[in-house]
């Protein structure tokens, strides 16, 4: 048996074990369900309002956009967070001390993070269907679009998460990433259409993946005539593939370089030094 193939298989199993463990952990479950509940409550109260210029429920428009945001949170922040934590407690160093351990580790992490993101999608969408009108879940076309938008979204965001996770050494600095993401949410049309925003803000938003993730999820789940209120009065699938694809390529080129750099620098004394720092934070 080829060692790389073994490591891939072992990595898949690793992802499954970690998935099982995260869904039996109270703290993790709270972290998954609490934002879902907040989102659903918000969408519930928005269901009576309408998207400007239409009589379509604003709540029903917000839910798919928020699912797109969920992909960014799960793929980018989720993976970055995992890397930072695993580096601090020595999990990464352990992987480095084992033949092909890094490969197995990374495969396991990708399985874990993308499964969590997709499970999150389901637990947000399912209750939403019960009280929101207009989502076209019965339409096979919707599922077809989801089937390429979701993987594309993950391929665009996971490598970015890996890059950020390799660059940040101190868990405290995760805030440096979370803040800009929050800003991005404000200008990316997640909770309200951005066609009313100044052109330069619209332009800025369209450089980043978040706007396109929201648009992609809306294009899958909303009726076709809702495209009329988007920029260019279209779902702009071609542009979406181009922008998300560009981020994916950028990430896939740079992430391995940064991951290797991070792995090379790991050693016992670095882990110990980080532990020392963490103790000082607590004490």
């Amino acid at each position: 048996m080829n060692p790389k193939t073994t490591a891939l298989r072992v990595g898949l199993r690793r992802g499954a074990i970690e998935l099982r463990s995260t869904f039996t952990n109270g703290q993790d479950l709270w972290n998954y369900f609490f934002p879902t509940v907040v989102l659903l409550v918000a969408v519930f109260f928005m269901r009576g309002a309408t998207v400007p210029g239409t009589d379509f429920s604003l709540g029903a428009r917000t839910l798919p956009s928020a699912l797109g945001m969920g992909l960014l949170f799960g793929g980018l922040l989720g993976l970055a967070q995992q890397l930072v934590v695993d580096r601090e407690d020595g999990t990464l160093l352990r992987a480095k001390a084992i033949p092909n351990g890094m490969l197995g580790y990374l495969v396991g992490k990708l399985v874990l993070v993308s499964s969590v993101a997709m499970i999150g999608l389901v637990i947000q969408l399912t209750p939403g269907m019960l009280f929101l009108d207009g989502l076209r879940l019965g339409d096979p076309g919707a599922w077809f679009t989801l089937a390429w938008v979701v993987p594309l979204g993950l391929v665009a965001t996971l490598p970015l998460g890996a890059m950020i996770g390799s660059l940040i050494e101190n868990p405290r600095n995760m805030g440096l990433v979370v803040l800009p993401v929050m800003g991005l949410i404000g200008i990316s049309g997640i909770f309200y259409p951005i066609t009313g925003l100044p052109d330069w803000l619209q332009g800025t938003a369209q450089v980043f993946p978040l706007y396109w993730l929201g648009l992609g999820m809306r294009s899958a789940l909303l009726p076709a005539d809702l495209a009329a209120v988007e920029i260019g009065e279209s779902w702009r699938h071609l542009e979406m593939v181009a922008v998300l694809g560009a981020w994916a390529v950028l990430g896939l080129v740079l992430a391995p370089v940064l991951l290797r750099r991070m792995a090379r620098r790991e050693s016992g004394s670095r882990v110990a030094a980080r532990r020392e720092q963490a103790m000082q934070r607590v004490g």
Partner: peptide, 8 residues
């Protein structure tokens, strides 16, 4: 190594 805390 001297101290491991991984895989808790």
């Amino acid at each position: 190594l001297q101290s491991w805390r991984d895989h808790g």
